[in-house]
Design a protein around this nucleic acid. Sequence first.
DNA 1: AGCTTATATAAGTCTTTGATTAGATATCGG
DNA 2: CCGATATCTAATCAAAGACTTATATAAGCT
Lengths: 100, 100
Amino acid sequence: MTPFEAVAEPARRALLDALVDGPKAVGALCAATGLSQPNTSRHLRILRETGIVSCTAEGQRRLYELRAERLLELDRWLAPYRALWRSSLQALERHLDEGS
Amino acid sequence: MTPFEAVAEPARRALLDALVDGPKAVGALCAATGLSQPNTSRHLRILRETGIVSCTAEGQRRLYELRAERLLELDRWLAPYRALWRSSLQALERHLDEGS
DNA sequence: AGCTTATATAAGTCTTTGATTAGATATCGG
DNA sequence: CCGATATCTAATCAAAGACTTATATAAGCT
């Protein structure tokens, strides 16, 4: 699965958002997202297989951690478009300047 | 449909990539992507309904044009993760510096 | 008007994928 | 060893979505 498909799912974005401020166990992620436990595990597996999170066993829990580098691919794809909307913003600014 | 889901589909990313260097008619987009015409129309409709492209009738053709601003939402979501991978890159650099 | 080109839409099929329920595995505390 | 907790996996179902074929609409040309 591509990172694009991985983050397309709202549940998985919620999981990632919950991981921004550090690694968490599955139970904590269930609580944070409101997802059922099996559902959480399934989405975490997808994220793990995509390489966006990694998992380390910590006693009877599993700590999931972000591997944000994997999202670089999204950022790189976005780059040409970013250039475009920057230029439209600039055009808008020019327009507003002319109007004032 | 969210912009996330919209760009998750490879065919739609191909269409967007073909539109980066300016508006194109449907036929040109078919040729550029190798998608069938109905398929192209369907994906273009999805992109249009999501607001990522706009369409203007030009005689018997329809010119599709990028509305890159709509992808700002992706960029904004990505921001916190960008901060993370920047710091991991910095950590890697520090590590390499120590090693040398 | 009739033919052609360009695009959109509809119907049908097939695949993918998300959610739930139930059960399996493993670790911890006594 | 046993019960409780934490997590994973399997099976099943339902829904979403992608692709094809066929058809409709509309503009352009002669």
